[in-house]
């Protein structure tokens, strides 16, 4: 993650994992949210090497739903292709439309200490907001 990006897991729905991600731009906040998903999935995200790339692009009626779709795309790629992915570059343009480059590798149980099998990102408490210091993306992962 770049210097302006961060995330933390916070108290949320009792069964699940909620997080708040921060970035200087909407794209950076989305990228930090993607890193939060990776941190929910694997104990040490640094063990996920950048061996393969995927690009995704889609639009939604608003930023909240764009975040929801982005996170659910990461869930899908984990199950359908066994891929653990770092968001390398995420751009959110007017529309809103998201264009992201993701880099990572297939799950290797010998090297990756796996944690939560996230079922889905949910719309519960979902928000993407501009703040004094940049942008925050809040979401809850159903585990």
């Amino acid at each position: 993650m770049s210097a302006g990006q961060s995330f933390e897991f916070v108290e949320g729905a009792t069964g699940d994992l909620a997080f708040v991600a921060h970035g200087e731009t909407p794209g950076e906040a989305f990228a930090a949210a993607g890193e939060a998903f990776l941190a929910a999935t694997v104990e040490e995200p640094a063990t996920v090497e950048r061996r393969e790339q995927r690009s995704v692009e889609f639009d939604e009626p608003d930023l909240d739903l764009l975040l929801l779709r982005f996170l659910n795309e990461l869930v899908y790629l984990r199950d359908a292709e066994d891929l653990l992915l770092h968001p390398e570059h995420v751009e959110v343009a007017a529309g809103p439309v998201l264009m992201a480059v993701l880099a990572g590798e297939r799950i290797d149980r010998a090297r990756h200490a796996l944690a939560a099998d996230v079922k889905a990102a949910t719309a519960h408490g979902l928000s993407v907001e501009k703040t004094e210091h940049g942008w925050t993306a809040t979401a809850t992962l159903d585990v």
């Binding site: 739903l65 929801l68 779709r69 659910n72 869930v75 899908y76 359908a80 079922k119 889905a120 159903d142």
Partner: peptide
Amino acid sequence: RGFGHQVATDYLRDFLH
């Protein structure tokens, strides 16, 4: 498993729209 999760995700999105 992932199958049921995706069914829920797909239809929640469609219904919201």
